[in-house]
Amino acid sequence: MKQIARRLAGHLARGLAMILVVTTISFLIIRSIPGDPMAAKAQKLMEQGMSPEQADRAVAVLYGFLPSGGMWDQYVDYMTGLARLDLGQSLTVPGTGVSTVLLGAAQWTVLPVLAGTLLSFLLGVTMGVYAAIKRSGKLGDALAVSGSLLHGVPQYVLAMLLAAIFTTLIPILPAGGTADIMIEPGFNAPYIGSLIEHATLPVVTYALASYGGWILAMKSSVVTVLGDDFILAAELRGLKRSFIFRYVARNAILPLFTILALSIGLLFGGAIFIEKIFNYPGLGLLLIDSISGRDYALMGGAFLLITVAIIIANIAADLLYTVIDPRVRDGAESS
């Protein structure tokens, strides 16, 4: 238990450091955007009859710091605002806090990414075991090559191919959005059906994008375990194949949990392409739209939330690993 607490503390410290770095980058970028949108906004408000102080304060509500003033003061302003979870106001959705917009979008990224990860994990691990057992045959070769190819192909290529096939050539799936706008949202069968229908392509793309990695990792892990002495011993003792298989699977699956965090992080980054291509209103699409709409407070918020999601995924994957691996859990290898 102590072991877990110490690991968790380390993770939290590193996560906080990352958040600090990312928000500092956001601050520096917002401050140095060419054309100085903050001064322009303050100017416009003053023309509308506000006093300079009022205009400054109105702009500060939008961006989180006063447009005039020293850089250090601005930075402190921005950071204290963030610490109070005040991310500023959105420009493109007037009168709405950035945090509200972000939370609305987050569900459309987090749920599909998790569903895709689960799907590809189950599929990739099963196929990886198969590829390892049949590694000298044609089938194993084909599985391994398909794995390397899917692992190598960028996510937007997969997304575009799937979109071209299933929405244009054989139009059986909807091209974008989260649900049919004609259906009343609520807890009813047609709406949920429509939700699932619209989520199919994004989830399948997430799944295919990480499936290749799982199959390759599982294959090499199983091959390593198969070479271990205890498997040979089990075979010599004449244990049933299903028994040996369970030994192999339980030992081979452990190292994969270290890749889990990496894979989820990759998908959160790739969400930008996938959501843009399928017009799915998650965090990635929000980030792109905020950049093209010059909504910089929203941009900083989306960047921050994507980073936070990755940090949480890292922590969750590590805790899962700690719980599953008895050697780490009991602290037998206290190093």
Partner: peptide
């Protein structure tokens, strides 16, 4: 995350 950083 590299891609969001590039976009920003």
């Amino acid at each position: 995350p590299g891609l969001p950083l590039l976009l920003v």
